[in-house]
Design a protein around this nucleic acid. Sequence first.
DNA 1: ATTAGGG
DNA 2: CCCTAAT
Length: 559
Amino acid sequence: MFSCKPYEVDSDMPIFADEPVGLEHFLVEPLRKEDWVGDLLDLDAFQIEKCFNMEDISGTFDYDQNQIKLDADTVHPMSPKGSEKNSELSSDKFQDVNTKVHEEYHIDTTLNDKACNFDYGNCKEMGTGGVENQFQGFHRSSSGNKMVDLSSTNTPVLEYGNNHHSSLLDQGRAKELHDTYNMSGREPFMEKSWPKKDNLYDFSDYAELDSSMNLVKVEATSNVSEGETTFSSLVVYSGSVTGHVTRLLHDERSSENQQMKRKRVDGCESLKTSTSAVKVEMCSLDEGDQAGLLVSPKRARKPPKRYIEESLNYDSRSHHRKCGIGRKLKDRILHDGYQKYKWHQKEFHAEVFEDDSFNGGCIQVPFGLPMEKEHSKKNKYILGSESTKDNGLVDQNEKHDTERYSVDSQDEISEDECVLRSSTQKANTRRKRHISWTPEEVVKLVEGVSQCGVGRWTEIKRLLFSSSSHRTSVDLKDKWRNLLRASCTQLHIKEKVEQSRKQASSNYVPDSILCRVRELAVVYPYPRENRSKDSCTVPAVSSFSTGSSNALVPLSTVV
DNA sequence: ATTAGGG
DNA sequence: CCCTAAT
């Protein structure tokens, strides 16, 4: 066991002046001995496999006035006991802990057989004065041989971590930041493998600072199966003092796999602080150097979208309800915008849920982010169509359309959309129900094209189709493309039978409209449709100019 | 997020 | 309509 001397931060540091301070890492992560950290810590003689056995994190994790303890009660799922190794822990729920982080947090983790303790004690009040952390370090309870004093060595660690961000923070502050938040400072080498590891660990750390929030969530899921043990936990701490810390721990152990991977969900890392320096620093850390390292070389290839969506289904329905993960948090995680971390996060999710959803069969299938994205998108869409938001804003024509489609499609959009889109539909027909384009819509589209030009579908949609939520800009584009084709073919064919048949149908597009489409096609050549259009229109123009030129001119002039 | 384009 | 790539 060793301890770190309290690290004091100058109170004049504006960053910490009155900023939320997050504790990014509670656990010292196994380090690769080749790393400089290993050198610094003299880990050559340090047998990691004995020290980083996350058998029992449940030790104490107490959030109290002065202390944060993680008790077995609180974070029970996080601590599969040796006796529980074969038990199914996947059903463990994430637990929410609403406590306040005050002056200290204390994490004492005991790993059962290897008996490893991580004891980060005395994280002093990080309020106005500054940050004072006292790390007791990680100590080995039983077979402790080596003592590592982080207090002396973590400075270089931090330096390393902040090298890339010196522009944002000066070295000293950066170091201090990392001293404070990043005990292990292992970013750069997280993905490196550790040949001598018996177990495979995967820690995903998610730190979030939000001064406005005072909630602590602890979510943990673990799956223990014969061959491998998947342990993951999501811990969100929010301190009333200066901020709340969200932490996401992910530990994956695999006895079969003889290497250790270090991953990180830093994409989730968001520091909502008014001082952007801290946030920037942290984020840049995440974004900057870790792109390649975060991704495991063994990363599975991107799964098909369908598959992801199916996974999403599971994810949204089972996992997050089950685990009680907050929507806000989830959104934060999922939409943080750090694309490069999506994979990692997805892997995290996959690993977390592998037990339930796929019985361990699809560990590597990442899902979560795209799914979430998709999901929210759909929901928004649904809401929009349901509420028929701008009912009052639309003209009569649009109102007509809206009503029409509300009656016609509301059922499906509101319910079906939700259900079909996500679960049922993907199984069978994922398509959204076909809604024929009405002549009114076509006219609107043509007008829109004449006004905005081809290609500005979003604008057209905004101007003319704002009320009809079922027509997306993509739909407009597709429809225009179809109109172009139709205008071409109709010119060529000119079949009365065809026309009559079309006229019978409700969505018959009048020839005049098609003529206008042709004209607009000339004015606004469609990127590639242009060729086909030309091939069509060259002969078409002749017939068109002879026959319906008069009908066309007014249309164009109207535009 | 939009757009273009293939299917 | 769906899906994807490109931007």
